[in-house]
Design a protein around this nucleic acid. Structure first.
Lengths: 257, 257
DNA sequence: ATCTGTCAAGAACACTGTTCTCGCTGCGGA
DNA sequence: TCCGCAGCGAGAACAGTGTTCTTGACAGAT
């Protein structure tokens, strides 16, 4: 039982080969994955695939979990390759990790961040890799809060219901440290969510073609947008002299114009 | 020629009926639209559909353009139903228009803001309705700029390449007024893009199930998030006494802790 | 050596998008 | 008014799809 019985080993190899072939088909042919086509490439007859996957959705599901873990790995590796005290660089690198993987594997990205597949079956084991990017984001923001960084604008207080929900999230996952109470941890998580939405919203816009004929300098725009969000989250150190340099023009009437 | 020749009229009626049936199927069965199924519901044989649409993609394309115009109509109607000098309310209402339509028509929303369909044919006439929401956003921000509203945080300057691209966009579409030069119009557009990404990123997250088990009070969270973005864009009037109330803690060392 | 469970193959079913051919029928021009 | 043509629906057919069932063949364990 300790040695996995040659038959089990060749079976595992076959499963792995089927998955790589399926990924190749996904990369070339787009979202419509044909069981018969991967069976052909695997040198099998279509019905033989059913020895390894109960149906097409099951094969797709393994591809989805693979995609989640690969995307999370790319993102986390990029974030870890940067000095930990350079918070904007960590955010930027995390974003680059997400974006470069998405651009390199658009079909797999569409599988996990596009329209959900009909008759979807979201297995429980996708939850952890799916949340790793936002967890890393939260970690960056907590590190910032720990060293006293604050958002430039006074943060809008959370509605009670949202506050309670984020608090519940904070409780049930022991991962992020409760940190000092200076910026409420719920507020940090809320800011992380904003960055999370912006990051995947922008990457999805680019990969799904919503930026066509609008913005061609994708790389430069992405970096700028990430830095804008770093500013928003208070990760960038601003000179104190700048922080009050603007004029407030909402003093009860029209502007100076 | 002025009277459209009974045959042409019944033909137009048939086309319309096919489209409504297709939309119903889209609403119930999800993304996989079966030509044969809509033919059955239309009381037709499958091949007869080809008198009206050259292929399945063409039918999908008309549904896509319909979805774009319907979404834009919902968004613009909601935005227009609010006093024009209440800028945060206009943003919030625009967002509600987008969100409520997306929740009411998730399959059609996925068609236009989800993963692009394979063998996509993005016809030219979708460009205008597709850009109407962001145009409305730009309009709101220009109105704010006109009455002197400024973002709370000092805006990050645009990279030259992005500045040039946004300037080109500004030139080729005579829609938004050039406005005063106080906040550079390119900067207003960049902020509008940020709000645009956040809006559709959040709605996509909700419709595509990315918020499941994370945030249940969707409505309240959406409104909060829209107001956060209104703050970000400087649409909300803050009391001058608050604008400098925070302390800058990036004075070369650790925070006060 | 025999039994048992796994594997691949093949046929079959229901379904899909698409094309072709065939009559029918309403319309426009002579 | 009549004719001919164009548009229309029906039906059959083709290639392709996911899925199920049955039939042999072979490896592993008893």
């Amino acid at each position: 039982m300790s040695v996995p019985s040659l038959r089990a080993r060749v079976r595992a190899e076959t499963v792995e080969e089927i998955r790589t072939i399926a990924k190749r088909h996904l990369a070339t042919d787009g979202a419509n994955l044909s069981l018969r086509a991967v069976a052909r490439d695997a040198g099998l007859v279509p019905s033989a695939l059913y020895r390894y996957f109960p149906n097409r959705d099951a094969l797709l599901t393994t591809l989805i979990t693979d995609a989640y873990t690969a995307l999370a790995a790319s993102a986390k590796a990029a974030e870890a390759a940067v000095p930990r005290d350079d918070l904007p660089a960590r955010l930027l690198s995390l974003g680059h990790g997400v974006r470069s993987w998405a651009r390199a594997h658009p079909a797999e990205y569409a599988l996990i961040y596009g329209s959900p597949v009909p008759s979807y079956t979201a297995p429980q084991e996708t939850l952890v890799p799916a949340s790793e990017v936002v967890m890393t984001l939260i970690g960056i923001l907590f590190d910032g809060a720990e060293r006293g960084l604050r958002p430039a604008a006074p943060p809008r207080p959370l509605p009670p219901a949202i506050h309670a929900e984020l608090h519940r999230l904070l409780d049930q996952s022991p991962r992020p440290k409760p940190a000092g109470t200076e910026p409420a941890p719920e507020m940090v998580i809320a800011t992380a969510f904003t960055l999370w939405i912006q990051l995947f919203g922008l990457v999805s816009f680019e990969v799904f073609g919503r930026l066509d004929d609008l913005i061609e300098e994708r790389q430069e725009y992405f970096e700028h947008q990430m830095l804008v969000m770093a500013d928003f989250a208070g990760l960038t150190a601003v000179a104190p002299s700048l922080s009050c340099s603007r004029v407030s023009v909402t003093d009860g009437g029209k502007g100076p114009r």
